[in-house]
Computed example of a mutant assay.
Amino acid sequence: MFTNPEQFANATKTLFELQMNTFNALTSKAVDGVEQVIALNMATAKNSVKGSVDAGMELSQAKDPKAAMDTAASQVQPAVGGAVAYGEQLKVIIEDIHKEFTEAADHHMAEAKNTLSALIYDVTKNVKPGSENAVDVIKAAIDNAFKGYEEVTRATREAVKTVEQEIAKATAQVGALKPAPKNEAAE
């Protein structure tokens, strides 16, 4: 059992540091992912504006309504292609974030488990007869802290999986919008 208050304070400090390290690592991964998505969105918006300006210029130079309609129709394929490419890039970003997040969570979970196991060992190695109830209370507190780590990690993995599924659905829907290639012989 903890033989003095300093041991208990060190154990508490260790648990707090583990929580903060895990939080910092996972937050950092999340922020990195948000930065990547923002960069993708900015590049997509820039390309979209440029494409719109170019399309507007082409439309304004059309000599008759048929040429204007042909110009407008020719813009559909690149727009859909851009949406599909965006979805694919977003999917890659999310998959990378998921992989990094999972690796960081697994690493911190293993570290927490090892540290908590060492704390439990420290708690139980010097048990005085009659102190078993106090040891059980401390073990339960340590076990509950670890279960909290596991629950947060599980919930986070489920959330990331849900986001990945929604992105996959959206990407598939955009991919389904691709117009059929023109059949020149039919015209």
Rank of each mutant, 00 (worst) to 15 (best):
D54V: 11
E88F: 05
E103G: 04
Q75E: 13
S60A: 15
N133A: 15
L15W: 01
R157A: 09
Q89H: 07
E150F: 04
Y86N: 04
V174K: 05
P65S: 10
A43H: 01
D32S: 09
Q19I: 06
E88H: 08
A170V: 14
S52N: 07
Y86V: 02
N126Y: 03
K99W: 00
H98R: 11
P181T: 03
D96T: 09
D143V: 11
A118L: 08
Q19Y: 09
Q19K: 05
N183H: 09
A45D: 13
G51E: 13
E6V: 13
P181Q: 02
Q61H: 12
Q89Y: 00
E58C: 07
L177A: 12
T22Y: 08
T171F: 03
H98E: 11
F146R: 10
L18S: 04
V174I: 13
D96H: 05
A85P: 01
T12S: 14
E111C: 00
L116W: 02
L15Q: 06
I142F: 02
T71F: 03
N144A: 13
I138T: 10
D70Y: 03
V84C: 04
I142E: 00
K113F: 01
I38F: 12
N144F: 11
A85W: 02
T71P: 06
N4Q: 05
T102L: 10
E164D: 02
H107S: 14
S131K: 09
N183D: 15
A72W: 08
A168D: 12
A140P: 01
V160I: 14
A39F: 04
L116G: 00
Y121L: 10
I167K: 00
Q173C: 02
V80P: 01
Q7V: 01
S48R: 12
D122P: 00
N126D: 14
A11N: 08
T12R: 13
T153Y: 09
A170C: 05
A170W: 07
E164N: 05
G81W: 07
K113G: 00
S48D: 14
D54G: 06
T102K: 14
E187H: 12
P179Y: 02
A168I: 07
E58D: 15
T115N: 08
H108L: 07
Q165R: 14
Q165V: 08
H107W: 03
T171G: 05
A79I: 12
A85S: 12
N114P: 00
A110K: 10
V37F: 02
K50W: 10
F8N: 09
Q165D: 14
Q75V: 08
E103D: 09
F16V: 15
D70P: 01
H98Y: 12
D64S: 08
